[in-house]
Design a protein around this nucleic acid. Sequence first.
DNA 1: TTGAAAGCGTTACCAC
DNA 2: GTGGTAACGCTTTCAA
Lengths: 326, 326
Amino acid sequence: MAGVGIATVSRVINGKPVTPDLAERVTRAAEQLGYRQDLTASSLRRADRRTHTLGLVLEDAANPFSAALHRAVEDAAAERGMLLLAGSTDEDPVRERGLLKTFTARRVDGLIVVPTGQNDTDLDAARRAGTPVVCVDRRTTAPQVDTVTVDNRAGVRAAVKRLYEAGHRRIAFLGDLRSIWTAEERYAGFVEGLASVGCVLHPSLVRRDLHGADAAQEATRALLALAHAPTALVSGQNLLTIGARMALQERQLQRRVALVGFDDLPLADLLEPGISVIAQDHSAIGREAADLLFDRLDGEGGPARHRVLPTRYLARGSGELPAPGR
Amino acid sequence: MAGVGIATVSRVINGKPVTPDLAERVTRAAEQLGYRQDLTASSLRRADRRTHTLGLVLEDAANPFSAALHRAVEDAAAERGMLLLAGSTDEDPVRERGLLKTFTARRVDGLIVVPTGQNDTDLDAARRAGTPVVCVDRRTTAPQVDTVTVDNRAGVRAAVKRLYEAGHRRIAFLGDLRSIWTAEERYAGFVEGLASVGCVLHPSLVRRDLHGADAAQEATRALLALAHAPTALVSGQNLLTIGARMALQERQLQRRVALVGFDDLPLADLLEPGISVIAQDHSAIGREAADLLFDRLDGEGGPARHRVLPTRYLARGSGELPAPGR
DNA sequence: TTGAAAGCGTTACCAC
DNA sequence: GTGGTAACGCTTTCAA
């Protein structure tokens, strides 16, 4: 319709140098025909075969942590003109494998994954097939895969120490599924923290493999019903913290039993007392993951890099409650 | 490598009837070569040209409402083997236009959009170009675009009535950007609610065009400093509710000034008093939007359909505080 | 600077 | 049932 070769159209669309007159004619024709470039066909033929798409594998898109991560990665991706394909695993390795499979089948340029931890071979397979992979929030055994995590152990260790110094001797721990790397790390930090101050670890005060607020609420109820109930609670995850607080509040114990949670919650500072947390910088985590991935896309070929970001303790009251009789 | 024609390979990959012996050879070769189907090339050649991808345009992926919507749509999409491409507009029509453009350029099969409201022509353009569009949370003037919204007016009206019946006569309203459809609707509900009980609308108690918690906090401070301060607050959005509550709490007024917020918040029931809200069912909204879209993908060609879902009032205390002197 | 033609990985069609 | 071949919409190469 513009009376030019198809190659010239391609040049105009891609902003390559073309005689103004021809360019004008092409633009006009495109407008008139309602022409829209087909990016999928484009990337199929392009030399670099880039789709300008990133795959993001989350635990659950509805979870505040995942949501914040999603946004941070999205912003970093947007700066490079890339888009995000996202999906949730619900900690199910089967779903994770499925997502990994369709993402790579769609030829995403790279993957940012919160791994379930039971699928490391698939992560490795994706990388070997040419799709760089960055793991976020959790380490992985897959070789040559970059990771971004926070210093879970140090965060929990410090919190335990604070509780001990406030007089607590019976400190309980609520942990997520043991298959989750962070759950293990945070528990390890709990154990290390107790050891470092010479405090006894009461096995009856450790409740792990809890998933979701309801499980934590029930576990906390059981803890509070013990003959020697804990005077302080350390919760290893977002939703567990909510469940623990619910159990405390239904017994009006939120001002008597200390609580420290891992990962911040919206509104946590408006509760009375506010929930003290070991906070992580979601934006920084997402940004760092994206940067590591972009490095790989830019040709960086070295060994796996592991970034460990610090946590920050936010004292809001619940973690500063003294042990009774002190 | 399998010693068969390329067409047979295609048949095996797509699970079409093939002599078992040949299929076996193809499968083996594919395994050995690490072959992975290229879905982008596949959809380019396929008769229906489907990419099995949906575009999701959100206000902000980090926002709890968006996150819940994302997950609900994802689940519905997964049932049909579809994946989600998601992006945030931050209420910026320029970003919305950009997202719409790249999504359609990538040939998504359909779009689910929380429209900024300043870009309806682009929504219409996408639809005319053959990409069905469903708007969520907000109505749009774009023709032939299905919508899923909640009955914002009825929700706010009922809440205002309750406050009036609890003795409140000076009821304030905090509203989001007026460009946002829901902000207008909720304000309209506020006005209607006051009118229905014959209560005076004090213009000084109306603060609109507030965006984000900080703006709401500041506005609430100003309201509380008035000579005739409000005895009750109605907040028209998530983050505004948080800001309002922060302002109340910094003056220790959370038990004296009533507060009702639109849209639920995690932890809202653990505050003291709990925040009463006009809740919407995020999952139902997302599911409904996806279903409308799938209908269109299945060939439904009728006029625009507008689903309106009900809201639910959750009494938690803050909205049940009586007016002083009552 | 331009256009013709090849080809990206796949599926659809049509003979065998 | 199978294989050769054309074609999807595009970019790249190469000769003009």
